[in-house]
Amino acid sequence: MKQFILKRLGLSVVTVFLVAVIVFFLTHILPGNVARQYLGKGATEEDLVEFRRVFGLDRSLLAQLFGWIGDLLHGDLGESMQYRVSVKDLLLPAIGYSSKLAGVAFFLIVPISIAGGVIAAMNRGKKIDRAITVGGLSAAVIPEFVWAIVLVLTVGVTFQIFPVSAFPDEGNRSILNQIWYLILPSISLLLVLFGYIARITRAGVIEALESDYMRTAVLKGMIRRKAVSKHVLRNALLPTIAVIASQVPYLIGGLIAVEIVFNYPGFGTVLKGAVDARDYAVLQSGVIISSLVIVIFQLIADILFAVLNPRIRQKVSE
């Protein structure tokens, strides 16, 4: 088991390294020119040289790549081109805010989606099943910002049930109130992610319901409800773990649009500002950090899957 975890960890490091390389080449090799892009068409040649010197862009590409990766390893994310402050100081508080939003969303999404999938599977072919599967996936292809606007328009502006911003006023920031303000943005994320997770859960439950071992349980004389809880759920929910991890990238991507609509000072809002200002230092760090989060979630999911599945557990402990 230890060996398995170490191996998975090694692969994760490789993945993050490759992400760094991809990101680096996207910004440095493609026919863009960071200095020119950043400073604009009016910049003089001296401005460009000075800019390149300050940000180390005058070194060879490989030197830049390894210099950058070395800095990353030391936790040095560089300096924002736009604000001339450390990227770390700019991103850390924003990430803190985003984690709150993502956390609330996650705790809303996972149980609701799994419950939806199980209900659909148990009522296979009935109207509620169609509603969950077709409705869920249809909701999932509508972008978060569209959902956010629809929600703001209806329950925010028209019916005024929920606050239309994601951030309570100063002096009113109790934890409960903060969560209350995050519910509406979380629902927009839920609407996008519900469909996939429910779909895979449903497939897993149906497979287990139709399995030979479920038949064995029923033919042992177990009543169906007990057989489902004892024999179906554990086997059925295993694949769901992997799917939830696979949805983390979409969750992070969705944060950007949702934060902007709800005017929330998170990671996404900072990134959007960086895009507008072409602040590569912030953008690069943003990508690295988000893939780090994604890779960590995948690692956790892989290990969890192996621990819960005796077949793999045995294989990896050999």
Partner: peptide, 24 residues
Amino acid sequence: MRLIEAISAIPVLIIALLAIAALE
């Protein structure tokens, strides 16, 4: 597979934003 895994570990929107910002 390693490359595919790496690309999948970057949110589509963020990598698109980065690439589009980097390109003229």
